[in-house]
Amino acid sequence: MALNRRNLLAGLGMALAGIFGSSRRAEAASEASDPQWKLTEAEWKKRLSPAAYAVLRREGTERPFSSPLNKEKRQGTFVCAGCQLPLFSSSSKFESGTGWPSFWQPLPKAVSTKVDFKLVVPRTEYHCRRCGGHQGHVFNDGPKPTGKRYCNNGIALNFKPS
């Protein structure tokens, strides 16, 4: 991994999350917009692996470079691991060097956002619009044409090849 500003900031963020995150409980995911996906915590725990539950329902973060989706290069669609809503086209995926699958644009009406202050500085967090599952954060250091980097937890996604 090359040492650059983005990797340095990602590492600092993970270190701060480890320091500050260990003493406080993670927040619950955003509210589902679709009544069919307003499940109880027990129902979500039954549906998801413990790791997927921690990220999607408790707004956790997986370890960088741990997702096999980082290396996914086929044509297809990345869908929410909680409810299978299509979130990103493979054509918007790019290699960010941060250790998480990154995209420069979500599919239309796929995600909703909110401001998160967990690391003291405000960040824009995004969730699956349908089930409210936490996906990751969006930053303004991505490639053209949007200049955005949707930094996604791989465990919060499934890949559907074309």
Rank of each mutant, 00 (worst) to 15 (best):
H134G: 05
T146K: 10
Y126F: 15
K93L: 06
E72W: 00
L39V: 03
P64V: 05
S90G: 10
H127I: 02
C83P: 02
L12W: 10
L107V: 07
R58K: 13
F88I: 06
A42N: 11
E43Y: 04
R129A: 14
E62K: 12
G76I: 13
L107P: 06
C151S: 09
D116M: 02
R25M: 11
R6N: 11
G18M: 01
Q135G: 08
S22I: 10
K45D: 01
G97D: 08
A81D: 07
S67Q: 09
G97R: 15
R25K: 14
T113S: 12
D116V: 03
N4D: 15
A17K: 01
L119C: 02
W104S: 07
V138C: 08
Y150W: 13
A29K: 05
E27M: 05
G82I: 09
L87H: 08
C80H: 09
R47S: 05
C151N: 06
G18K: 04
G82A: 12
R130I: 09
N4C: 14
Y53A: 03
W44S: 08
P161G: 15
P122F: 00
P101R: 02
A81Q: 07
V79D: 08
P143Y: 00
T113P: 04
R129C: 07
S91W: 01
P106M: 02
S33P: 03
R123D: 00
L16D: 00
K118P: 00
E72L: 01
N152S: 12
E31H: 03
G99E: 03
Q84K: 15
P143R: 03
G82V: 08
G99N: 04
K118W: 01
P101L: 00
N7P: 02
R24A: 12
M14Y: 10
R63N: 05
E59M: 11
Y53E: 04
L12E: 02
R63Q: 12
S112E: 12
P35Q: 14
G76K: 11
